[in-house]
Amino acid sequence: MAATSILLAGFGGQGVLFAGKFLAYKGLSQGKQLSWLPSYGPEMRGGTANCSVILSDTPVGSPIITEPDVLVAMNLPSLQKFVNSVVPGGKIILDSTLIDAKVERDDIEVFYVPATQLAKDAGFATLSNMILTGKVLKEIDIVSYEGNKETLESFIPAKKAGLIDMNLKALQIGYEL
């Protein structure tokens, strides 16, 4: 009877909502109960955006995450805003290319992933979100890594199917860190 709450946060345009959507579809494909809740409004236009995903073996109560098990921080303001809300024993996965700061808490696990740099090096600068998501898949137990291709195919429109391979590579880079 497990449930994992994942809060993804960053600037609008970094693919926070897409990464969350991928995790939600991942849950769907593996028979999990789930909720996906985006922040919405003016912050979508360049400010901070965040997205709450809950994957669970039992029905999801509130879709609002107040104490995430996993925080994915893609910029400094997001880290600062949510660092203290992470549940003790929880995890933070952050983009260390963009966040030049260390997390002071010692009751959580922190993974410094230079995702933006890794994405540039791999030739798909916009996919740091999926590198971080690959790392998320490594660190959570509620869904397994297998079946990413099918999951991506299930919600990426056919005319953008050409992007699936890149997304898979990005996930793999993050997963194999």
């Binding site: 959507k21 939600a24 769907l28 109960q33 789930l34 909720s35 996906w36 809740l37 985006p38 919405y40 999801v60 879709p63 609002i64």
Partner: peptide, 10 residues
């Protein structure tokens, strides 16, 4: 409300 409108569930 805005939450139920914006959220996704199966």
């Amino acid at each position: 409300d805005g939450t139920i409108g914006q959220m996704m569930e199966p």
